[in-house]
């Protein structure tokens, strides 16, 4: 079982890293979008291994289906691209970007690795008397609890999110739609 866990993790981690790197460095934008979709789907699969069934399903539906169609439409609209292929920016910027990102990555790993080692500290909350809820999460999934949390404690951001999406729709409709002058 342990072997299976680590094998699944390794496979999906490798898929995520390879497909994301390929998406960034692919020569053709179509390949890039395709491997980005692979990356999104593997992230969704990784969520499923983390006992996050609802998030995993949403990830697969939103990113794996919705976003991929959106990106495909964007390629269709901009497909007849300029004659020269757009690949990387000027070499200096690429070099500086590599330096910056590698520094950032090493800083992150330096800070993350000692502090969050599960053996080294006891700051995390223990489950204690919530064993029943944990057990029911393991059995029926997280959707019920997430729903209860969102509609009890996080009503305010949820309502604000609805207004945000409305504003997004109105704005994009205005920006991308035909001008109203003809009316």
């Amino acid at each position: 079982m342990e072997f299976l866990n680590s094998a699944v993790f390794l496979i999906f981690a490798a898929m995520i890293i390879f497909s994301s790197v390929f998406a960034v460095f692919a020569h053709k934008i179509e390949y890039s979008v395709l491997s980005a979709v692979v990356c999104f789907l593997s992230v969704g699969a990784l969520f499923l291994t983390l006992s996050a069934d609802f998030i995993g399903a949403s990830q697969i539906m939103i990113y794996g289906v919705g976003v991929s169609i959106l990106l495909a439409f964007a390629i269709m609209f901009t497909g007849k691209d300029s004659p020269k292929s757009l690949y990387l920016t000027n070499p200096l910027r690429v070099f500086l970007g590599f330096v910056l990102v590698l520094t950032f990555l090493s800083v992150l790993i330096f800070f993350i690795s000692p502090v969050l080692d599960p053996k080294s500290d006891g700051a995390f909350s223990s489950y204690g008397s919530f064993a029943a809820q944990i057990e029911s999460i393991r059995q029926i999934g997280t959707a019920k609890f997430i729903g209860r949390r969102i509609f009890c404690d996080y009503v305010l951001p949820f309502e604000l999110l609805s207004l945000l999406l409305l504003a997004g729709i109105v704005g994009v409709g205005y920006l991308a739609g035909g001008s109203k002058k003809d009316v």
Binding site: Y154, L156, P157, L160, L161, L163, G168, G171
Partner: peptide, 18 residues
């Protein structure tokens, strides 16, 4: 942080469009 993030994005996204 949930409220903060959603409010921040509300401000940002409407600013992008504006």
């Amino acid at each position: 942080f949930i409220t903060m993030f959603v409010a921040l994005e509300t401000l940002s996204i409407s600013s992008y469009i504006l």
